[in-house]
Design a protein around this nucleic acid. Sequence first.
DNA 1: GCATTAATGATAA
DNA 2: TTATCATTAATGC
Length: 209
Amino acid sequence: MKASDMKTISCTKLDEDLLKSFGAEIKTYREGEKIFNQGDIPIYYFQIIEGKVKENNHDTQGREFIHNILGNGQSFGDSMLFIDKRYPISAEAITECTVIRLSKPNFLNLLEKHPETSVQINSCMSQRMHYQFIMLQNLASNDPIIRLTGLLEYLKSFHTDDIPQSFPVELTRQQIANLTGLRVETVIRTIKKMEKENTLKIDNRKIFF
DNA sequence: GCATTAATGATAA
DNA sequence: TTATCATTAATGC
């Protein structure tokens, strides 16, 4: 393999027509609708065509913890397709969603017939693990500024351009709180502190990082 | 008007 | 210092 070929291995979505040719179906979900539940047996590969999905679960007091928020073109639940375990998390549409899904046996069949997609999936999971570790590090800190910057860096990593403080955070403060394990008020206050320290900008209540 | 989101203050742990 | 609770303001439907 040439060195230039390495670059072609990227974490991009799988081709929709290819998925369809292996029996994938398009499903739409209303806002707030569950896509799968914690404890379910994973039987589908999911990829978002349009909309936003969150992966979450709830602690003993019923408080929500969001693990991830995914957008257009991103897949989810795929890491659970290669082992015989139930979902440790739930997935829920947070906007009206169009999702393409492929059953587990068909998905495995696709990977077998098209090894290049298998490499792609590996690349995706690799990248996801990379950021999971970074998130874990940041979440282990008890300093809220570190938790927030960690999350913001993570969100920004999906963005290509890196003009300082130009990345708009499309999350409510409540969602940020649920992603960091902090309380809304703490998020609000810490964000204001960070604005004073010039690590981010607030314009019309919108956060730019 | 009602629901959601953001902001702020008081107080407890 | 952050969490918790209460209150208020702003925004959008």
